[in-house]
Structures are given as C-alpha cells and as structure tokens.
Computed example of a mutant assay.
Amino acid sequence: METVKVTAETKATVVPATRKKRKLTADHWFAFSFLLPSIVLIFIFVYGFIGWTGYVSLSSWNSLVPDFSFAGLKNYAYLFSDFRFQADLRNTLVFTILFISVVIILGQFLAILLDQKLRGESIFRNIFFFPMALSFVVTGVVWQWLLNPSTGINLFLKKIGFESKWYTDTNILASLHWGKIEFGVPVAMIAVVIAAVWQMTGFAVAMYLAGLRAIPDEVREAARMDGATEFQIYRKIIIPLLRPITVSVIIIMAHISLKIFDLIYAMTGPGANFVTDVPGVYMFETTFRGNYYANGAAIAIIMLLSVALFIVPYLISSRKGES
C-alpha cells in the first residue's frame, strides 16, 4: 500500500482552500435588500434619536424657544442637586428591590405549585397569566379604584371601622439609614409594588414553570434514592438549577422597574412630597409641562444608562454562552 506524504507545499495549497471566503450570491443581496429598510429605520428612530436626546441634554434648551448653545454637564449637575430627582432615585431603588424580590419569590412558589400536576392546572395558569394581557395604565386605574379610601376595598373596610389611605399615604413604613442618605419605604409605594407584582408575577411563573418542566424526573428520583426529602430536593437541586432563569427574570424585571412610568402616573402620580415619584414621571412633567427640554433629555439619558447597566452585561454574557 502506498503512503501519501504531506509536505509543506501540499499544506500551503490545502489550508487557503479551506479558509476561502464565500462569495455573496444574489440570494444574499436579495435578503439584505429586504432587511435594509428596517435597519435604516432602526438607526434613525432608535439610535439617531438617542444621539439627538444626548445632544439636547448638553444644550441650554430649557424654554419653548430652541437654544442649542453648549451647556456641558450643567443639566446633569442640576438634577443630582435637585431634591425631587434625589427622591426619584431613592424611590426607584426601593421600588426595584421590593418589586423584583416579591416577583421572584412568588413566581417560584406558584410555579412549584403548578408543577405538582394538580387538577385544574390550566385554569390556575390562565388566572396567573391574565394580568400580563393588560397594560400598566389599566392596572394603575383598577388598583387606584380598589385602594381608594372612598371606593373599592377600603369602602368595605371603612364600614367595619378600619380605614386606610393606601396609595395616598405618605407615612414611612420602614427606613434604612446609610450615612447621610435615608431610604424610606412609604405606604404609598407599597401599594404601587402590589399592583406591579400582580401584573408581572405571571411572567415569572411562566419562566419558572418552563424551567421546572425541563428538569428530568431522573434527577429527582436519584435524589430520593439517596434519601433526600422533597424540601431538600428543591432547596439543594431544583432551585439552584433554576438560577439562569432567575437571572433572566431579574434582568427583565429590572428593565421594567427602572423605566416605570405609566403604572405610577395612572395610579398615584408624583404623590404628596414625591413619595411615589420616579424619573419617568419627572421627565414627562419637566419636558412636556415645564418645557425644560434639556433637563428632560438629561433625565432620559440617565434612565437609559441605568437600564444599560443591567442589559448590556447580560447580553455580553449571553453571547459568550452561545459561542
């Protein structure tokens, strides 16, 4: 049998052939021509307007008459020294922590209950998922009526001698001091968190339920054979396996909470002493009611950067995982 010797010359002829780039065919250009309008519109109406907002935030346009003279970081310095914006940042942090924590705990608990294959699972699943079909505006109006001191739940409670202001209550339920900074949890913010959790828990339930159904039964059976109890199986095996889903839920819920506007605006507005005010509400009133366009643009850029702090690392890690 003859042996074939691979020399350096044959390698030189083979390697470039394997690395030869594919030529763009007519089908590629045809597909690109269909995508081109969408790409152009995205660059104009997304990235173009983001750039325009950033440019306006560095200008002196704080009146009805446009003034594009460069102001540097003057608008940002004003915001971080403004009492209302400082309250907005604290309220956003409090709302985000409470909202994400309750959604994750309640979503996992309900998903585990649904995973027990009980009768009427489809009915309960539809009940949990239904609030997601509503907009935040509808949710805000409904919960405003339910928690109003003169209607809804409080009308019944008032008859039995218990009256609560709920979403209008400015009292601080709990507070945390960090140096000179105080993080308070007003009762009104609790009411907003309840409404937001009611709407978005169904999403977490769907995510966790899909993760639970993807875990093989052999994992549970092997743990039972080793003498693990059901509580130990969920605490040490099932819940750790759901960690990627938990990260996804945290990222999505943080994205929603950091740019929340419609729910709070429809339900409470800024609230007395700005107890439920958030940057989204402040931006709307500053830009479209006060005509301070540069300040409103600065608030929008700060909101964009805060969301990007969560989304960008998540996207980078996702791409690394796929590669």
Rank of each mutant, 00 (worst) to 15 (best):
I104G: 06
R224G: 09
R319Q: 15
F274K: 00
A17P: 04
K11P: 04
L58F: 02
E221L: 09
V65G: 12
L212W: 04
G202W: 03
V46R: 08
L309E: 11
M207Q: 10
E2C: 11
L64M: 15
L134K: 11
G202N: 01
T170G: 01
R220Q: 10
I251C: 06
R289H: 12
Y78H: 06
R319T: 11
L58V: 08
I127H: 07
F124S: 06
P244H: 13
F70Q: 07
W145Q: 11
T268F: 05
G48C: 05
V94L: 11
G179M: 06
S69P: 08
G72V: 08
D262K: 02
T96P: 00
F85V: 00
S57I: 04
I252D: 03
T25K: 13
K21H: 12
T168D: 10
S257L: 06
T18P: 08
T168G: 12
K5R: 14
R289Y: 13
P279S: 10
E285T: 12
N62H: 07
F156T: 06
T53R: 02
F136S: 00
V141D: 05
G227L: 09
N91Q: 10
I97F: 14
R125D: 13
I256M: 09
H28Y: 13
F49S: 13
F261D: 02
W166H: 03
I301A: 01
I239E: 06
V247N: 00
F310H: 06
L114S: 02
S57Y: 04
F32A: 15
A196G: 14
Y282A: 10
M132F: 13
G321K: 14
I153C: 01
T286K: 05
T139Y: 03
I260N: 02
K11N: 11
Y47D: 15
F99D: 03
T276A: 05
S248A: 14
A133R: 00
Y78M: 08
T92C: 10
Y234E: 12
P149I: 07
G107D: 01
F45A: 01
I316T: 13
L209V: 01
I237K: 03
R243M: 11
P16W: 05
S38G: 15
I252A: 05
K23G: 08
S318H: 11
R90W: 02
P16R: 05
T96I: 02
V275K: 03
M283F: 12
W143D: 07
V6M: 14
F162D: 07
T168R: 07
D27L: 11
A254P: 04
N291Y: 15
A214G: 13
I112R: 03
I39H: 11
L209C: 03
T96E: 01
K20M: 09
G211D: 04
S323T: 15
L241C: 02
K23W: 07
N154W: 08
N91G: 04
I42T: 14
M207Y: 12
T246R: 05
F310E: 04
K259T: 09
P240E: 03
R213A: 13
P279I: 02
F128G: 00
R289C: 10
A210K: 09
T3S: 14
G120Q: 05
